[in-house]
């Protein structure tokens, strides 16, 4: 997918949104949601290839796949939460956006717990 196609799609959607948002704010939210999802879906197939390359590199370097899995999971959670929170903020729901972000932070903490535990165990084994 060409970068210019993505850029033009974003610009055209912004123009349409500028037209719609004043009259029908709820339609504006949904259009910006659809446009955002669509633009990211255009580039998603390429990103999957990048992830596979990262996995190969980690395997060659001898890094456990659990750590890479945790890193990928945290990245994904951050991405989805950011997407949702930005849309909430666009719709004027500042409060809801903060809650979504807080929930995302808690989920990231849960996902990263095995790594924290591993570091803690390492420190303990060094001390004793």
């Amino acid at each position: 997918m060409n970068v210019f196609q993505v850029a033009v799609l974003g610009l055209v959607c912004s123009l349409i949104l500028a037209l719609i948002r004043r009259e029908r704010p709820e339609m504006g939210v949904m259009l910006s949601l659809a446009a955002g999802a669509f633009i990211l879906m255009l580039v998603a197939p390429r990103a999957v290839g990048v992830m596979l390359v990262f996995k190969d590199m980690a395997e060659n370097a001898g890094i456990g796949s659990t750590y890479l899995g945790v890193a990928l999971k945290v990245l994904g959670i951050a991405y989805v939460v950011d997407f949702a929170a930005d849309l909430c903020r666009d719709a004027g729901e500042e409060n809801l956006a903060s809650r979504v972000e807080l929930a995302g932070k808690i989920l990231i903490l849960v996902a990263a717990l095995p790594v924290i535990e591993g570091v803690f165990q390492l420190i303990l084994s060094l001390l004793t």
Binding site: M27, M30, A34, A37, F38, M41, A44, M51, L75
Partner: peptide
């Protein structure tokens, strides 16, 4: 207005579902 919102919402829901499925595959969530 309500009818329009419902119609658009059904269209957007499928797109969002596809999008989240893509993200799920990409980051192995």
């Amino acid at each position: 207005t309500l009818t329009g919102v419902v119609v658009v919402l059904t269209m957007v829901t499928k797109l969002i579902w596809d999008f989240f499925s893509t993200i799920r595959v990409m980051f192995q969530l």
